Computed example of a mutant assay.
Amino acid sequence: MTGEEIQTSNRIGRKLTRDASRRTFLKGTGALATTGTFVTRGVKAHGSYGNRVVGYYPSWAGNYTPSDIPFDKLTHLNYAFLEPQSDGTVVVGDSSEKSLLSDLATYDNTDTVFMLSISSGWYSGTFSDAASTAARRQRFAKTAVDIMEQYNFDGLDLDWEYPDGTVRAEDPHNFTLLLEACRNELDSRFGSWTHLTMAGSPNPNIVDDAYELGTISSYLDHINVMTYDYHGDWSNDTNFNAPFDSPPEDPDGQQSWNTTNHMEYWGSKPISKDKLVMGMPFYGRSYSGVAPTNDGLFNSFSSSTSETYYNIRENIKPQSDYEYHWHPDAKVPWLYSTVENTFISYDNVDSISNKVEYAKANGFGGAMCWELSQDPSNTLISEMHDRLHA
């Protein structure tokens, strides 16, 4: 065989392997047609099902290796992140990232859908550059799908934060055109079963400014709504990282600033609710210099940082000076230490369970976490899966 024939054979072999294993998940949900090699274009081709369990897996996961990932608990694994260049080229990082992707490519005996997530950071401008012309959008789509095929992944996830017109006024429409270019590239190479998703802001102002939902919904399997980071070092006072509902006593009066209200806001838009996946954090927010009033809640603070669920559960909560509290409206826990004057808001099994039950009961498309390595015990992702699949 010539070099070109060998490459063609390898591509076919990878696709057949992908079809035989990971498409099992799609068959089980009715997302694949029963005749033909590929599905016909339509809603079902892009995942009309409500039990997604999406886990982001970052390149910096460290000791949490691919062998630690509970694939049996995940419908989708989102590798984070590939990076776009201003000219539209999507690139893999250094040799260690290439090695990690190669390692993940060997896990082809799972029913999990493997996604490559592409991001360029908060308002970096790089995504805006990459989407600014037709030639760059096509280069983005081609190079991203090249990498997807090279490492035997099943689809793409775009995490542009955010195409709301802040960098370029044309960004909202250019994002639509970028998704269209990716969908067309995927369909032309693999057929319309191939996955395309995005990460979306929970903020209604950004939702309205950034996304042409009536158009992009037809290109997407689902949207991972990032319903977390409601409060942090940018806030006026200590508050919850991802409240289920807003406490009526919130001193800032942010009664609509919560996960359920924002999921309902997304649900009011021209996109099927079962394409909306509710995001949940596997980390919390720690605030220092907090007075003991109200057990640390709604007080001023001197500094704030993030804490993984693992560190909270294993190292912080067991300390005798940290007291556990639960808010009846926010439906999330917090810890407070009068010794260290520290307030910590986070999600645990109980709050994750409640959120998953809400997503399931209200017709949303499942649950997503950021991110898996923050809970190496896999306690939270197991709860997420078991509740959705009960």
Rank of each mutant, 00 (worst) to 15 (best):
2 T>W: 04
7 Q>G: 02
9 S>L: 08
9 S>I: 03
15 K>I: 02
17 T>M: 08
20 A>V: 03
20 A>I: 00
21 S>Y: 07
22 R>Y: 04
24 T>A: 14
25 F>G: 02
27 K>Q: 08
28 G>T: 04
32 L>N: 05
41 R>K: 11
49 Y>W: 15
49 Y>F: 15
49 Y>N: 08
50 G>R: 12
51 N>Y: 12
51 N>S: 14
64 Y>W: 05
65 T>M: 01
67 S>M: 12
68 D>Y: 10
75 T>I: 00
76 H>L: 09
78 N>R: 03
81 F>R: 10
81 F>G: 09
82 L>K: 11
84 P>K: 13
85 Q>K: 15
87 D>E: 13
87 D>P: 04
90 V>C: 08
90 V>W: 03
92 V>Y: 02
95 S>H: 08
96 S>F: 03
98 K>Q: 15
101 L>Y: 00
107 Y>H: 13
108 D>Q: 11
108 D>P: 09
109 N>M: 10
111 D>C: 06
111 D>P: 02
112 T>N: 11
112 T>S: 14
116 L>N: 11
117 S>Y: 09
118 I>M: 10
122 W>L: 13
124 S>L: 09
127 F>K: 13
127 F>M: 12
131 A>M: 12
134 A>N: 12
136 R>C: 01
137 R>T: 03
140 F>C: 02
147 I>S: 10
147 I>G: 06
149 E>K: 01
149 E>W: 00
154 D>K: 04
155 G>H: 02
157 D>G: 04
157 D>Y: 01
158 L>D: 00
159 D>C: 03
162 Y>H: 07
163 P>R: 09
164 D>A: 06
168 R>V: 01
169 A>G: 04
169 A>Q: 05
175 F>R: 07
177 L>N: 01
177 L>T: 02
179 L>T: 06
180 E>G: 10
182 C>H: 01
182 C>K: 05
187 D>A: 09
189 R>K: 09
191 G>V: 06
195 H>T: 12
195 H>S: 07
198 M>E: 08
198 M>D: 04
210 A>Q: 09
214 G>N: 08
214 G>Y: 06
215 T>R: 05
218 S>V: 03
219 Y>W: 02
221 D>C: 00
222 H>M: 10
223 I>E: 05
227 T>I: 02
229 D>Y: 02
233 D>N: 11
236 N>Y: 04
250 D>E: 01
252 D>K: 07
260 T>G: 01
261 N>A: 14
264 E>W: 10
264 E>Y: 07
270 P>L: 00
273 K>T: 13
274 D>S: 08
284 G>Y: 13
287 Y>C: 13
289 G>D: 11
293 T>M: 04
294 N>D: 14
294 N>L: 07
296 G>M: 09
297 L>I: 12
297 L>G: 10
301 F>G: 14
302 S>I: 09
303 S>G: 08
309 Y>W: 13
314 E>K: 15
321 D>Y: 14
329 D>R: 13
331 K>I: 15
336 Y>C: 00
339 V>G: 09
342 T>C: 14
343 F>E: 15
344 I>A: 10
350 D>C: 05
362 N>W: 15
363 G>E: 03
364 F>E: 07
364 F>W: 14
365 G>I: 13
370 W>N: 12
371 E>T: 13
373 S>R: 07
378 N>G: 03
380 L>R: 01
384 M>I: 14
385 H>Q: 08
